[in-house]
Design a protein around this nucleic acid. Structure first.
Lengths: 229, 229
DNA sequence: TTGCGCCAAATAATCGATTTTTACTTGACC
DNA sequence: GGTCAAGTAAAAATCGATTATTTGGCGCAA
C-alpha cells in the first residue's frame, strides 16, 4: 500500500493511466507501445502491463499484432470515416430515444452538464487543450444519451466515442478553426434537446460529429502532403 | 509446434476454445471460471489463461471481479431486456442501412446464407442443438447486416449478439416451442430483405429477436418459480 | 553489384513460483 | 444458542526468469 489508491488492482491502475495517456494524445496513434518502458515507468511486472494493454486492445484503443507487439490504434481515413458514420448512426439514435423517453431529471442533467461545459475554457493560458474541458465535453455527450434508457446502447456509444478521442490532440491545431463556433454548436444541441425537438437536435448532433471528423481529415491530408513534399 | 495449429499464439487458441465453450453453453452463465482447471485442461500457463479470460471479459462474455476472479457473464432479466432493446435498435438500423445501400452481391450472400440455414437441421438426431445450425444461424444474421457498409456498426451488432448467445443453450428446451416457426421467421426476413422492403424486413427482424428473448424470460421465470417451490 | 540465406540482438510470449487477498472453518465468548 | 473473531485453506494477482519469434545486419555466392 504505497500509493494513494489502495482498493484497485495494479493492472487496473496501469490500465487507467495508459488509457489516459492514450486519450490525451501523449501516446500518438500508430506509435509502438514499448511494454518495457511501462514496466520501468510504473514499477510493475510485465504481466500487469500486458493485461492492461490487452484490455485496451479490446477497447479498440490499441492494436495488437500477434508476435509483433502493440501499437496505439491508428486509423486510415477510410476507417475514420467508417467510425464517424457508425457514431452518427448510433449516437443520433440514442439521442432520439433520450428525447422520446428522457425524464425531467435527464433534462436537468443535460442543462447542468452543458452549463459546466460552457463555462470551462477549451484552452489553458498556455494554449494547450484544457483537461477539464475534455472531461466536461465527454460528460456532456454522455449525458445527452443518458436518457435513452439502455445502458448497453449508451456503453456502445461511449466506446466508439473514445476511439475518436485518440485523435483529439490532432484537433488541437484545429481548435483555432475560425470556421467553427464549437461553443455555439454545443449550445444548439443542448437547447434543441431540452426543447424535445428530435429532428433538430439529431441534425445538430450529426453536424457536430461530422464537422470534427471533416476537420481531422483535412488536417491528415495536409500532413500527408507536407510529408511527401 | 506440437498441436495441429502452429500459426497462432497460445493465448489466442485458449481464447477461441473458451469462447466456444461459453457460446455453446457448456459453461453456464453465472458459474465461476476456475482458471486452474483451464491451466490443466489446456496444458498452458496461468498467464495465458488470464489473458484469454481478460479478453473475454472485454467482449462482455465474462464478468471480471477484481480480487475475486471471473465468472460466466450472467444477466438479470432487466439486463437481458436492455440487451435485447439495444440489439433491436442497432440490428434493425444496420439492416435498414443494408437494404438502402446493399449491392447485388450482398443480396446474393443473403440468399445463399439463408439457403444454407434453411437446409441445416436445428437439432441433431440426439435432440441436441446442432453446432452447424448455430454457425449457419450466426452467418445468416451477420450477412443480413453486412451490406450496411460500416464494419464498425456490424462489429458492434455482432458483439451484442454474441452476448445473447450465452443463453442459447437455455433456448434448447425452447426449441420445441410450438408457438413459433423459426424457419419461417428466417424465410420471411430473408425474402423481405431481398425484396428491399425496409419496413417489413425491419419489423420481421425485430419480432425474431424479441420472440427469442421473450421465450428466454418465460423460461427463466419458470426456473425461478420451481426453485422457490 | 545484387540477391539470398544465415546469424545475432531485440522483443514478444510463456512459464513456474511467490505474494497478497479472499473465503471458509473452527472455536471461544457473549 | 447465536455471533464474532482468529486461523487456515484456497484462489487471485504479481513477479522474475526462460523460451520462442521476429527483425535487421552481415557474409557469401551468382
Amino acid at each position: 500500500m504505497t500509493g494513494p489508491s489502495a482498493k484497485t488492482t495494479r493492472a487496473q491502475e496501469v490500465y487507467d493511466q495508459i488509457r489516459d495517456r492514450l486519450l490525451t494524445g501523449e501516446l500518438e496513434p500508430g506509435s509502438r507501445l514499448k511494454l518495457n518502458d511501462f514496466v520501468e515507468g510504473y514499477g510493475v511486472s510485465l504481466s500487469v502491463v500486458r493485461e492492461a494493454v490487452t484490455r485496451l486492445a479490446g477497447d479498440g484503443l490499441v492494436q495488437a499484432s500477434p508476435q509483433r507487439g502493440f501499437a496505439v490504434m491508428s486509423l486510415t481515413i477510410e476507417q475514420l470515416l467508417d467510425l464517424t458514420r457508425a457514431r452518427v448512426l448510433i449516437e443520433t439514435m440514442a439521442l432520439a430515444e433520450s428525447i422520446k423517453l428522457g425524464t425531467v431529471a435527464w433534462e436537468a442533467a443535460v442543462i447542468a452538464s452543458h452549463h459546466e461545459l460552457a463555462n470551462t475554457p477549451m484552452l489553458t493560458p498556455d494554449g494547450v487543450i484544457n483537461a477539464d474541458f475534455t472531461h466536461a465535453h465527454r460528460a456532456f455527450h454522455d449525458t445527452l444519451l443518458s436518457g435513452c434508457g439502455s445502458s448497453r446502447l449508451q456503453g456502445v456509444a461511449t466506446e466508439l466515442r473514445a476511439c475518436s478521442e485518440l485523435y483529439q490532440s490532432w484537433s488541437q491545431q484545429l481548435a483555432h478553426d475560425d470556421t467553427r463556433d464549437i461553443a455555439c454548436e454545443h449550445r444548439t444541441i443542448s437547447e434543441l434537446t431540452v426543447a424535445r425537438d428530435e429532428d433538430g437536435a439529431v441534425a445538430a448532433l450529426r453536424d457536430h460529429i461530422e464537422r470534427t471528423t471533416a476537420a481531422l481529415v483535412r488536417y491528415a491530408e495536409e500532413a500527408a502532403e507536407s510529408a511527401t513534399a
